[in-house]
Design a binder for these strands. Structure first.
Lengths: 210, 210
DNA sequence: CACTGTATATTTCCATTGGAAAGTTATACG
DNA sequence: CGTATAACTTTCCAATGGAAATATACAGTG
């Protein structure tokens, strides 16, 4: 952070400290996200966070209730970034296959670029899945998956939930790859060769022409 | 636990407490596993664990070094059970397809039956992946995956790592499914219908006749 | 403007936790 | 028998999340 410890937005450095922060909720979210992305969730404490923003360690409770509430809010932000990352590049893709590949690469790219955040987002231990904002943000991401798999012809059966099966099949595959990669379970095969990229092992989903 | 709190194996109840436990390492492993499976990792504390076994809260340090060392040892045990679960039923399978399905079902069954343990086993935050015993146990599980995917003809290319691609493809798929299922991400689709089983969405891997 | 309720933030206090350090007891081995 | 070492205990500490009571700012309302 640029101005040292107890600086607060809108407060000149000579000016005496304000009682009200003014934008504490957002400041906590930003600082919390920063700590998580840089040092990992294990290093995030309410006290360190509060200190970074210049408030007492119980101040976050007003806005987030508890540690879990804070992390849930950060996780929700994560899901919004996640959806954006997947949608990014989707516009330039013209064919269904290109769109599938773009979204898939976005999924993995986000997971690798934000490993701690990614982990938190999918961990019910850390995020409250009943939280409305969180649910909405997660749904926003899931919608991308739905849109992508709508064009796929992988499951040709007539059963009513064929579409759903396709979604879960695709999701399982991509999510598993990203998770194993982040857990260091893929790249440490003995031969030292680089691990296959996700497109190298993508199952053939087939594409509807319509 | 049957005999109350401070009982130690081989100690009659009237007898005064022994200084040396005798089999502390295994007792801690068993009690730790029990707590994790029943109450989750979050509820496991060195103090509670030590109390359950009847020793001081610093006693575990002699055998495991730290909390992470203890959890790593439990994770290793998990991987051994995991391999056994996958191999179980494998013997009765005659065809390659049956073997694939049996192992896959074993993977998911273990994950669902031991959600906390499964989570820990694949979390570098909780298990030390450099630990020798842990690595060996994990490898034991991975070997099952290798054996299974050796019979698959999914990746027909001649490239030298085609076999490896098949393994990772299969692993990603199964692991993703199990992970998402345990995270409650699959079964809570709106329509209330039961989620597809893993065999319902298994990609077609094809089988070598040899 | 004064008054008051409510949101925001602080201070103080507490139980719990993992671990470090030093001391105690048993065991193994010469 | 005696001594090194392994196995445990006791004591101490800093860090953490949170509860409770208090202080400060602010937004309406009369």
């Amino acid at each position: 952070m640029f101005p040292p410890e107890r600086y607060q937005s809108g407060m000149s450095q000579t000016e005496t400290k304000r009682y009200h922060h003014g934008d504490l909720r957002n400041a906590l979210l930003r600082a919390g996200m920063e700590i998580i992305e840089r040092d990992g969730l294990a290093r995030l404490s309410l006290r360190a966070l509060a200190a970074a923003v210049g408030v007492s360690h119980t101040a976050p409770k007003n806005h987030f209730g508890s540690m879990k509430g804070l992390v849930t809010a950060i996780g929700a932000q994560g899901f919004r970034k996640f959806a954006a990352e997947m949608r990014n590049g989707l516009t330039q893709a013209s064919t269904r296959k290109e769109r599938l590949h773009a979204a898939t690469l976005g999924y993995v790219r986000f997971a690798q670029g934000h490993p701690e955040l990614f982990k938190i987002m999918f961990s019910p231990d850390h995020c409250d899945r009943e939280d409305t904002a969180f649910k909405d943000a997660a749904q926003e991401s899931y919608r991308v998956l739905i849109e992508i798999s709508e064009g796929l012809a992988w499951d040709k059966s007539e059963a009513p939930n064929a579409q759903k099966r396709t979604e879960i099949m695709l999701w399982s595959f991509v999510h598993g790859y990203a998770t194993l990669l982040n857990a260091g379970r893929i790249d440490d095969r003995a031969d030292g060769a680089p691990p296959p990229g996700i497109l190298d092992i993508m199952p053939d989903f087939g594409y509807l022409d319509r």
